[in-house]
Write a protein that binds this DNA or RNA. Structure first.
Length: 351
DNA sequence: TCTGGGGTCCTGTTCCGC
DNA sequence: TCTGGCGGAACAGGACCC
């Protein structure tokens, strides 16, 4: 078996903030925006003890932990820190799949002593960047990922597939990536509340409930069966800009103006990358949180802000929101095919 | 308690051409 | 000529992830 490691930087954004502001060490720190509708992006482990967690409304986090220090996110700083860490990772291993700013999968197949190499990598990251991370090692991405989560922070867990099955048998299926809250709820309705139960239920029951693909996939995940291969390069298939308003907006002229701003930002970025798409879409979230998307294919690929703005405004007019709007977004997709990427060895389409 | 922003992938439906 | 089946593309929505 070719081992895979999953590396995850502990409380990444909060940890970067603590490096810059050592006086905050030991205090509960919450990285979050400041508006009335902000949510927590990361909480330090001190804040987590109060029940504060990612994606929680900041208003609620403040109630749970009134003494927490709120810090506004600084994505440029996190990007720089992430680059430093990933450079060290690439020094240690040839094949790396970076997932977001704070995570990566590492192909350990070429290493003679993979565990020792990962220990050295963790130490190098700590010495050179001041950041701590957790490592999981397993025969595939699923085992590696769950293992890296199991003993955070500063975890170092190495498991075979069978050990993973045994160790997490009594846990909720939601422990496994790809099984979210909605699926957990539906499984509970079937009386399935543990990974053990999900792994052993007759697959037909899952097919009946979740369909011919998703059903068997859930069971494979519960058995920690997954691909051991990494995707070492990816090309984005869409790009978008969206914003949630502090207060809902009903005025259509104002909404159309905002759409123009978002399209402008998005197209500026697309132009810098010399990317053009044929699919223009809007996203509208209403005051009752219902979310609607509307999309249209246009004849020629574009990154022209005027074109994108016009299509987006037409889509908004046709939809004519029946309630005040809390979020508005613009997306461009169906990009012109990019030049062939020789490193894209995992991207061949199934026939 | 009141839910961000940026993405990916999957599924079901509808439409259209053959 | 009419009809049905089929497959692909487009579209909408939803679940999920960081």
């Amino acid at each position: 078996m070719a081992p895979i490691a999953h590396l995850d930087i502990d409380a990444f954004y909060a940890s970067v903030e603590l490096l810059r502001r050592p006086e905050l060490r030991g205090l509960p720190v919450i990285v979050s925006g400041s508006g009335p509708r902000a949510v927590v992006t990361t909480a330090s482990y001190e804040a987590r003890r109060f029940g504060v967690g990612s994606a929680m409304p900041t208003s609620r986090a403040r109630r749970l932990c009134p003494d927490a220090v709120l810090v506004a996110p600084d994505f440029a700083a996190y990007g720089a820190a992430s680059k430093e860490v990933m450079a060290l990772v690439r020094e240690a291993v040839d094949r790396v799949e970076v997932v977001g700013m704070d995570e990566a999968y590492l192909d350990l197949a070429e290493l003679v002593a993979p565990r020792a190499a990962m220990r050295r990598l963790v130490n190098a990251i700590r010495e050179k960047t001041g950041l701590e991370c957790s490592i999981g090692i397993g025969p595939n991405r699923l085992v590696a990922k769950v293992a890296s989560d199991a003993e955070k922070p500063r975890g170092f867990v190495c498991l075979t597939r069978e050990q993973a099955c045994a160790r997490f048998a009594g846990h909720s299926p939601g422990l496994v990536p790809g099984i979210g809250p909605k699926t957990v709820e539906r499984l509970e309705e079937m009386g399935i509340t543990t990974l053990r139960a999900l792994a052993s239920v007759p697959v037909q029951a899952l097919v009946a409930r979740f369909g011919a693909n998703h059903g068997p996939d859930l069971q494979r995940r519960a058995r920690f069966e997954a691909s051991a291969r990494l995707t070492t390069s990816r090309v984005a298939v869409s790009e978008s800009r969206e914003t949630t308003f502090d207060y809902d907006i009903s005025d259509s002229a104002q909404l159309e103006e905002i759409l123009g701003d978002l399209a402008g930002q998005l197209c500026e970025r697309l132009a810098k990358q010399d990317r053009r798409g044929r699919n223009v879409a809007i996203k509208v979230r209403l005051s009752d949180f219902t979310t609607v998307t509307r999309a249209r294919m246009i004849p020629l690929p574009t990154n022209d802000a005027q074109v994108v703005t016009q299509v987006a405004r037409e889509l908004l007019r046709e939809y004519a929101p029946a309630r005040p709007v809390r979020l508005l977004g613009v997306r461009v997709a169906s990009f012109q095919t990019a030049p062939a990427d020789p490193d894209a060895d995992q991207l061949a389409l199934p026939l």
